[in-house]
Design a protein around this nucleic acid. Structure first.
Length: 830
RNA sequence: GGGGCCGUGGCGGAACGGGUAGACGCGGGGGACUUAAAAUCCCCUUCCCCGCCAGGGGAGUCCCGGUUCGAGUCCGGGCGGCCCCACCA
């Protein structure tokens, strides 16, 4: 036996990484008949070096993947790079290096770093989204979605510099209407953009959440809120030619409506403004359009508005109320117009008080006290109550009033019940270089024409002219812009905007299935085999954007016949942040950044991995701690030493196990209980920390025992083999090494990572003697050892035999005895 | 303002469906080994009180109340922290 006494991760880690790779141990699909498991971690954006957050996600995912493999599953565990995006472009602005070049380099660095951690990825399926062979399928999906009406062009308002001829950000507008760079006039212009009609799936995305029982509730709740279904009604207020349609969830309050407010962008504003007010209205609209969105509509923003001069007729009361426009009404929600009921809506009340508009109470609290008079109302009463002064609906509870009033509107044809969503369509045009070109050609005659599928991919031109302004860089590459209209062949202009990078991450999980396929985005047969993802690990910050787009896209793929299920992923695990040693978020500013690279060099990947798993359960934030890391490193050394010290047990015959007695029978029990506990920590709740703690206890026991007889040595050998196998998902390199040490010279094609997961003997796990707590009136007064099978009478006798228990029982009447088998007995006295 | 999560030793954290609170690790203390130190191995470590020891008593999971034989766990009300959304009509 040539076992080094010293634990030296440097040499063993590199060696096992090479062995795994040679053996192709992590290739998916090599155990074809076995049940499958798709374990995925969110792919990284390769910016410079790997950081601790990455080390944590991939360590968690890898422990799951390695365990599943040992459980006999055919495991799919791919990795790739989310390589397009803003950071590479911003970095290019500083040093002029081409994003492609920088990205290629970063990926290489990242790949090396990931490999040094020993993650069990199937590297043959690696993808990078900046590869045309990847993004051409973004373009393909775009075309398919265009065909289905799921992509459309809409206009949004943007600042347009009349001299630079480009879109500029609100922050770049100075002195109200001047361009920061050239001082020329800035106008608000309608700029077209591309959007995905995700709202068509609002209902289905919401309903689907019910099936995601293995997603953290906070994520499904966030999605539910984000989709934001609200039920209400739409009604028309007559105003001159065409009516103003408002959406409300509180139709029951409409008798209290004293004015109507439109968003500044509402299309009817120009028509409604009376001649004497037109100038003022226009000025307000233009100012609002230029104001930063957050400053304008944020909750803290002061309410501002102007009267249009127009009046609108309340269809229920026949009353004419003034029409205003104001900053707090959002064009994008509901109908962009609201009926204002200051007595029963706080925003409306504030606005009414500010502009001297009337307040009218029409709902009273259901029971007890009445609201003060309208003028004295301290704040709006926004709860449901009972309608008052509401014509035929007076006296009805709010919910009933809403229902009947909506039905009335439908009968009379001026409105109907309606459902509105908070979810907006996904605008995905970006005025950026480092993204997927949108496959469209603009023809003077035919407008926007899709690029035929056979002409894909539309390649990103190598000339990167990074503008850093709102202007699309691709517009500055004439060779790119110049194109022929696919329909008529005449000269036309290519679309110069690129896609949001959330497009890339919406379907990458499927591309892994057949990453080199050049005929389709992925092979539906493979999808049938591997999808949906069984476990997806990533940060909770992606709860709404990525994870919602990803669910949307999967539905589209389902409708295209590419996948057989609507939902992409069964179980989601959201992991917490790795903070600096000071408990603050790692940041250059605090000087508390710790990188995995140097830590791996110092302690080895296994130690860093153990730290990530032992510090806390996956979903909790953790603080990096040098002391804890050293402790985990000491643990591995301690494991190493015990294996070395017990070399004489390696050859012990398993047949001798039956003879183990005394402390060595206890050791056997401990071994089997450890198998049980580690297994539980890996399945179900994912509590790696307690699993590792159990392993530490086993190792501590081994250190305390000195085997002599053959049976003792067999028990020790059993414990050592179990320890190595249980360690494999967490500290895989050390585990392989130790496993092979016990078994003798390694057999070339037998790797621990492919061995079956150890099983425990239920007989050994169930101890035959248990400690039972003895309480008197719920207070602990002693404990007794009893056979596990002991009944109440037996335990009671043992307990009452104890002096201390007797002392507490003395002179009191025994009223009741509560007995919990194997756990406790409680004497209730009085 | 709305929604969600969470408050346990000096610290990170354990505690299966209410059943011995503090597993395991860090830090700290003591001992063994050593000429010495480091490393290692063993033991102790929630707090307070009584006791020479053995041991015993009390308090204790953010606070107040409730349910229960029994509450870290369940219920109600506070306080504090973190995260997400945020003038969504």
């Amino acid at each position: 036996m040539s076992m080094d006494e010293r634990y030296d991760p440097r040499s063993i880690e590199a060696r096992w990484q090479a062995r795994w790779e040679e053996a192709g141990a992590f290739r998916a699909g090599r155990r074809a008949p076995a049940p499958r498991r798709y374990v995925l971690e969110m792919f990284p954006y390769p910016s410079g070096a790997m950081h601790m957050g990455h080390a944590r996600v991939y360590t968690i995912g890898d422990a799951i993947a390695r365990h599943a493999r040992m459980r006999g599953f055919d495991v799919f565990h791919p990795i790739g790079f989310d390589a397009l995006g803003l950071p590479a472009e911003n970095a290019a602005l500083k040093d002029g290096r081409h994003p492609a070049e920088r990205t290629r380099e970063n990926i290489a660095t990242f790949r090396t770093a990931l490999k040094s951690m020993g993650y069990s990825f199937d590297w043959e399926r690696e993808i990078a989204t900046c590869d045309p062979e990847y993004y051409r399928w973004n373009q393909w999906f775009f075309l398919k979605m265009l065909e289905r009406g799921l992509v459309y062009r809409r206009t949004g308002l943007a600042n347009w510099c009349t001299s630079c001829l480009t879109v500029i950000a609100n922050e770049q507008v100075v002195d109200d209407d001047r361009c920061e760079r050239c001082g020329s006039a800035v106008v608000v212009k309608e700029i077209p953009e591309w959007a995905f009609r995700i709202t068509a799936y609002a209902e289905d995305l919401l309903a689907g959440l019910a099936e995601l029982g293995e997603w953290p509730e906070r994520v499904t709740t966030m999605q539910r809120n984000w989709i934001g279904r609200s039920e209400g009604a739409e009604v028309d207020f007559a105003a001159g030619g065409e009516p103003i349609r408002v959406f409300t969830t509180r139709l029951d309050t409409i008798f209290g409506c004293t004015f109507v407010v439109l968003a500044p962008e509402h299309p009817a504003v120009a028509r409604l403004a009376t001649p004497e007010r037109r100038a003022e209205v226009r000025a307000f609209v233009e100012r609002m359009a230029r104001t930063d969105a957050l400053a304008r509509t944020g909750e803290g923003a002061p309410k501002e508005g102007v009267f249009t001069g127009a009046r609108a007729r309340n269809p229920y009361t026949g009353e004419e109320v003034p029409v205003w426009i104001a900053n707090f009404v959002l064009a994008g929600y509901g109908t962009g117009a609201v009926m204002s009921v200051p007595a029963h809506d706080q925003r409306d009340l504030e606005f009414a008080r500010q502009y001297g508009l009337p307040v009218r109470v029409v709902i009273q609290p259901p029971a007890g006290e009445r609201l003060p008079a309208a003028e004295a109302l301290p704040r709006a009463f926004t709860e449901d109550g009972v309608a008052e002064d509401c014509g035929a609906w007076s006296g009805l509870p709010s919910s009933e009033a809403r229902r009947r009033m909506a039905a009335f509107a439908r009968e009379r044809g001026f409105g109907a019940p309606a459902v509105r969503w908070h979810l907006r369509d996904w605008g995905f045009s970006r005025q950026r270089y480092w993204g997927t070109p949108i496959p469209i050609v603009h023809c003077d005659e035919h407008g926007p024409v899709p690029v035929p599928e056979s002409d894909l991919p539309v390649l990103l031109p190598p000339q990167a002219i990074i503008t850093g302004t709102g202007e699309p860089p691709l517009a500055k590459v004439p060779e790119f812009v110049r194109a022929a209209c696919p329909r008529c062949g005449r000269p036309a202009r290519r679309e110069t905007e690129t896609m949001d990078t959330f497009v890339d991450s919406s379907w990458y999980h499927a591309r892994y299935l057949s990453p080199r396929d050049d005929r389709r985005p992925f092979d539906p047969e493979e999808a049938r085999r591997w999808l949906p993802i069984d476990v997806y690990v990533g940060g909770p910050e992606h709860a709404v954007m990525h994870l919602l787009y990803f669910r949307f896209w999967h539905r589209v793929m389902h409708e295209l016949g590419l996948t057989h299920e609507k939902e992409p992923c069964r179980r989601l695990v959201t992991q917490g942040i790795v903070n600096g040693p000071d408990g603050r978020k790692m940041s250059k500013r605090w000087g508390n950044v710790v990188e995995p690279g140097p830590m791996v060099a110092r302690f080895g990947a296994d130690t860093v991995r153990l730290f990530m798993l032992f510090a806390a359960p996956p979903e909790k934030d953790i603080d990096w701690s040098d002391e804890q890391v050293e402790g985990l490193h000491r643990f591995l050394q301690r494991v190493w030493r015990i294996f070395h010290a017990r070399q004489d047990c390696f050859g012990a015959p398993p047949a001798a196990l039956a003879g183990a007695g005394g402390p060595f029978l206890e050791l056997r029990r401990r071994t089997h209980r450890t198998i049980q506990r580690v297994t539980q920590g890996l399945e179900g709740d994912l509590k790696f920390n307690t699993g590792i703690a159990a392993l530490m206890e086993l190792v501590n026991d081994l250190h305390r025992l000195e085997p002599a007889a053959a049976a003792d040595r067999a028990a020790v050998r059993e414990a050592l083999l179990a320890a190595a196998a249980l360690l494999a998902p967490f500290a895989p390199h050390a585990a392989e090494e130790l496993w092979h040490e016990v078994l003798g010279p390694p057999v070339r094609d037998r790797l621990l990572c492919e061995e079956p997961w150890p099983s425990f003997d239920p007989v050994l796990v169930a101890s035959d003697v248990v400690t039972i707590a003895v309480q008197v009136n719920g207070k602990l007064r002693g404990e007794v050892q009893a056979p596990a099978s002991a009944g109440e009478a037996e335990v009671r006798e043992l307990a009452q035999g104890q002096g201390r228990v007797q002392a507490h029982l003395a002179g009191k009447a025994l009223r009741k005895v509560v007995f919990v088998p194997r756990r406790l007995i409680n004497f209730v006295v009085g």
